[in-house]
Structure formats: C-alpha cells, structure tokens
C-alpha cells in the first residue's frame, strides 16, 4: 500500500495525516478517506499533514486541486502543512500555492 490516511475531526477543524507515497494509484484511497470529512457540515477547515509523505507525483497534485475545488464548493478551506523539501518543491513547481494554502 502506498499511502495510509488517518483523520481526526475536532470541531470545525479536521486534521488528516498522510503517510507514504502519493501517486496515481493511491489518490483513490485518499479521496475515499476524505469524503466523510468533506461531507461533514461542522468541519470548515481541513488540515492535510504531509509530514509522513515521502514523495508525491503530478497526478496527485491534480487531485489536490480538484479536492480544493470540492472543498470550496462546500465552504471549507484546505491547507497543507509539514511537507518535506522534495514534496514542497513539486508543489511549488505545480503552482499549488495559487490554489490552496501551503505552510
């Protein structure tokens, strides 16, 4: 398995911790795991903790953009935190910061 996801919701904030490699084949699992969070009306902020993500590939950047689109449509904000240097470099190359918040 290339990615594992754990979700903790605390009031309006949901924290999603990812571990592994985010690639074309793991994106379906991430989407599936995030669906309840996106459907949760009391959550307004979703924090994706990338500290355990070793690498990420372009299709996953596309998936994160689509996710941000869905979240915005449901009045939620998505932010990415703790990405490592390699992942951060890919995010910047993809101009992901123009679509969602990266810290």
């Amino acid at each position: 398995m290339s990615i594992s996801v754990s979700v903790q919701a605390n009031g309006p904030q949901a924290s999603v911790t990812l571990r592994g490699t985010l690639d074309s084949m793991s994106q379906a699992m991430l989407k599936q795991q995030l669906e309840p969070v996106l459907a949760n009306g009391s959550v307004s902020q979703i924090r994706l903790d990338f500290s355990g993500v070793q690498s990420m590939e372009a299709a996953s950047a596309g998936m994160l953009m689509m996710l941000s689109h869905t979240a915005k449509a449901r009045n939620k904000a998505i932010g990415i935190v703790n990405a490592n240097a390699a992942v951060l470099a890919l995010m910047h190359k993809a101009n992901l910061g123009k679509v969602l918040s990266i810290q």
Partner: peptide, 20 residues
Amino acid sequence: RAVIEQMTMMFVSRLIELEA
C-alpha cells in the same frame, strides 16, 4: 501556462478515475 499545467495535472487525476 500555469493554469494549463494545473489543468493537465487535474486531467491525469480524473483520467485515472474514469479509466478505472
């Protein structure tokens, strides 16, 4: 160009889903 690059990434993401 940045938008189109992003669209290309979204295209791939959606393509994987739809092909599956």
